[in-house]
Amino acid sequence: NITNLCPFDEVFNATRFASVYAWNRKRISNCVADYSVLYNLAPFFTFKCYGVSPTKLNDLCFTNVYADSFVIRGDEVRQIAPGQTGNIADYNYKLPDDFTGCVIAWNSNKLDSKVSGNYNYLYRLFRKSNLKPFERDISTEIYQAGNKPCNGVAGFNCYFPLRSYSFRPTYGVGHQPYRVVVLSFELLHAPATVCGPKKST
């Protein structure tokens, strides 16, 4: 009989979030998941669920729940959905087409922007091929755009693959930082360890 609440607040209220290319994953298990708490945590810009209804979450049980978190800019949030393409979905964080879970995003301009520009958040701009779903690539190998090998040196047709967002508070919403948490629900042929409040007794 599990009584402890799932530590969603640790994920959502973390002081620092990860850069999207090096997104963070927390496995959540053996706890009571009260998803209604999430609705009250922040004024969400996005709370979209796929393959599951957000209002039914509190009635369900899962084997595992994974919470992935990272920062992107406002106009990239739409890429965090099944079947999307674009720089983020292709080279940084890719959801599977049959994704079961929820994408939660909110504006973090007050936390993640600086007047002089916050350069701490990076994204991958160049990659030889698209990522597979939930693949994480943290390599910093020089990207070869031409025929000549780069031998690890940046220059003509040889690019450092990561680029930094420079978040400034005066930017338009599309270029402001957004914190994203992706909850993916895993149903294996194994005992369910993460249940809503109704199912945990």
Rank of each mutant, 00 (worst) to 15 (best):
T3N: 08
N4M: 09
L5M: 11
C6L: 02
E10Q: 11
F12A: 04
F12N: 01
F12D: 02
N13C: 06
N13A: 05
A14H: 06
R16P: 06
F17V: 05
F17A: 03
A18M: 05
Y21M: 04
R25E: 02
I28W: 15
S29E: 10
C31V: 05
V32H: 09
V32K: 10
V32P: 04
A33H: 06
L38H: 03
Y39E: 11
Y39F: 15
A42N: 10
K48D: 08
C49W: 03
G51F: 00
G51W: 00
G51C: 01
P54A: 14
K56P: 06
L57Q: 05
L57D: 06
L60T: 13
L60M: 14
C61W: 08
T63K: 14
V65Y: 02
V65C: 12
V65D: 01
Y66D: 06
A67W: 07
D68P: 00
D68V: 02
V71T: 06
I72Y: 01
E76S: 02
V77H: 01
V77E: 03
P82E: 03
G83N: 13
Q84P: 02
T85E: 08
G86I: 06
N87L: 13
I88S: 02
A89L: 01
N92S: 02
N92W: 02
Y93T: 01
Y93W: 03
L95A: 00
L95C: 01
L95K: 01
D98P: 06
F99R: 00
T100P: 00
V103P: 00
W106H: 00
D112N: 03
D112E: 06
S113T: 10
S113F: 05
K114P: 10
K114W: 09
V115K: 15
S116N: 15
G117N: 12
G117W: 04
N120L: 09
Y121Q: 06
L122T: 15
L122R: 15
Y123F: 10
N130M: 11
L131R: 01
L131T: 04
F134H: 09
F134V: 04
F134L: 07
R136Q: 09
R136S: 05
R136V: 04
I138S: 10
T140Y: 08
I142M: 12
I142W: 08
Y143T: 07
A145F: 11
G146N: 06
N147E: 14
K148T: 14
C150K: 05
N151D: 13
V153H: 14
A154T: 14
F156K: 15
Y159P: 08
Y159N: 10
P161M: 01
P161E: 02
L162Y: 02
R163E: 11
Y165G: 06
Y165L: 04
Y165T: 06
F167M: 05
R168E: 13
P169V: 02
V173Y: 12
G174W: 09
G174Y: 09
P177W: 04
V181A: 01
V182R: 00
L183D: 00
L183H: 00
L183F: 06
L187R: 13
L188T: 15
H189T: 13
A192R: 11
V194H: 11
G196A: 11
P197I: 15
P197A: 15
K198E: 12
T201S: 14
